[in-house]
């Protein structure tokens, strides 16, 4: 069984974790086109190479981010989401709403 290095709990069996999908930027939901929104919701890159994904350590309820190579199955790096998401995100009806994760 694969071992996942959790930034909080250290190396653990992958069975302790829940996959949370790729980290992706949400288009501005009030200004994007229907097509852009549909692509965000339904399309997945599935690329052969390094992907950035959400993973949850179930026992501690801790979400983190892992960079994983989908061809070699190598986990390259894991880190706290605050490395990417470090500011409060606001939504408003204004067309200039900040994009999540931008």
């Amino acid at each position: 069984m694969k071992i996942m290095p959790c930034p909080l709990n250290g190396p653990r069996n992958i069975s302790e974790f829940v996959h949370g999908g790729e980290v992706r930027d949400m288009p501005n939901p009030t200004t994007c086109t229907d097509r852009e929104w549909a692509e965000y919701v339904f399309y997945s890159d599935n690329q052969a190479g390094i992907v950035t994904e959400w993973w949850l350590h179930a026992a501690s309820g801790y979400w983190f981010i892992a960079e994983r190579h989908t061809v070699t199955d190598e986990i390259i790096r894991t880190y706290d989401p605050s490395e990417i998401f470090n500011q409060r995100v606001e939504f408003s009806d204004e067309t200039t709403a900040k994009e999540v994760g931008a």
Binding site: V18, G20, W54, L56, G61, W63, P81, S82, F85, N86, Q87, R88, V89, V100, G101
Partner: peptide, 20 residues
């Protein structure tokens, strides 16, 4: 639901504590 809440707030960074 709890997991989704935690994941959203890992992105939104709101000042809220979430407990199951």
């Amino acid at each position: 639901v709890y997991r989704e809440m935690m994941k959203w707030n890992a992105q939104w960074r709101l000042d809220v504590d979430i407990t199951n």
